[in-house]
Write a protein that binds this DNA or RNA. Structure first.
Lengths: 200, 200
DNA sequence: CCCAAAATGACTGAATGTCATTCATAATAG
DNA sequence: CTATTATGAATGACATTCAGTCATTTTGGG
């Protein structure tokens, strides 16, 4: 606010935070820019100094979410463990994240899909894809998964499969614990076979 | 327009058709209800006799798209062929459809994801899931795919994997022919292994 | 150095224009 | 004549814009 340049109070960040808050509680359609600026404690016009339109916040929100996912994965997936164990924690983590952030994630898909922001998805997801590709590379070098797969392409397929499975359980059904567990187990078997995991 | 009850000119259908047209060319945000009614040749207010809001057309559009997908699949996938051949035509068909209707499909994801219509996805996709489940059931009974998989759950995973692969090629990249072919081949291998297809 | 004067640009919020939605009325049909 | 369906102008809600405000920084004359 004053002193030595520390508290520059990044407005953009505050807007994104407020946007996530409001959007999650009111949904995409019912969220007014006036709600967001109220949450961020700024004036209506200020919003437009940082984003050209209401929807333009979406890519920033997406980045925050991908960060969250990667953080969680870094923490829970032990890259030195066997590929089976890694895959299980991967799936568990994604499922937990979807359970805890279903609104945010639903929001994300809606917002990014809308409008012209689809293209940005690729860039935003890039670090996620890279991380999984790396994981597959290691496993492949070690001879734990089939040689015939292309790790880059397959990373996307793995992510797609696991995320769509998680979405289905948490977004559409209000599934009970057993249902969730069964779905997680099914994805595990599906992906494990797809990767051609070799039991040693 | 008059005669014996034949040309009742289903307004609802005309609205949906017009909506698909306009939405595809202008995108979700830039499409005005006035554009849709102009395309359908009706008055502004008439729209609201058939749909409670602009977004409410989305589920109807989704139904049309799922119909289109199922029609194409019925036509191209020979249920008497081996599961390998069925899977290949399945993938080919989905890829072709995504190539030819990328705007419609992008639109669809955006529109359904928006707002409260997410829940309807399940119902709209049901026949699609059922069809794939049936395909897997047959293959499983014949011992062509692994016994351990649950066909219902796996049907969703298969659809998810194939569709997300197709989206990625056509929505984000403007991939060349070779890239598309490579992606299709990779999904085939992925799903074939996932299903545990047994070579006879 | 010191202090006005001038420049800067982040910030504001009322004003504007664009739609989605509604509603009083008209047309049509049974 | 009544019920149903259709109309399109009127309404109100909002996203976006813009003419200013104000704190801070820069300038240059003493």
């Amino acid at each position: 606010m004053s002193k030595g340049g520390i508290t520059i109070e990044d407005k953009k960040e505050r807007i994104v935070r407020a946007a996530i808050d409001v959007l999650c509680s009111k949904g995409l359609e019912k969220t007014k820019v006036s709600d967001i600026v109220k949450g961020a404690g700024i004036a209506q016009g200020t919003f437009y100094l940082y984003f050209p339109s209401k929807l333009a916040v979406m890519p920033s929100i997406a980045e925050v979410m991908v960060h969250k996912i990667l953080d969680a994965l870094h923490q829970s997936v032990n890259l030195n463990a066997s590929i089976e164990v890694q895959l299980r924690s991967f799936i568990g983590t994604v499922f937990t994240l979807h359970q805890e952030n279903r609104e945010q994630l639903a929001l994300l898909y809606a917002g990014l899909a809308s409008s012209e922001y689809l293209k940005e998805w690729e860039a935003i997801y890039a670090p996620y894809y890279r991380w999984v590709t790396e994981m597959l590379n290691t496993a492949q070098s070690a001879g734990h998964i089939r040689d015939s797969l292309n790790t880059g392409r397959t990373a996307r397929l793995v992510i797609g499969a696991i995320e769509s499975a998680a979405e289905q359980v948490f977004l559409f059904d209000q599934a009970d614990e057993g249902e969730i567990e069964a779905q997680a187990e099914e994805v595990y078997a599906f992906v494990a076979h797809a990767l051609g995991i070799k039991v040693l």
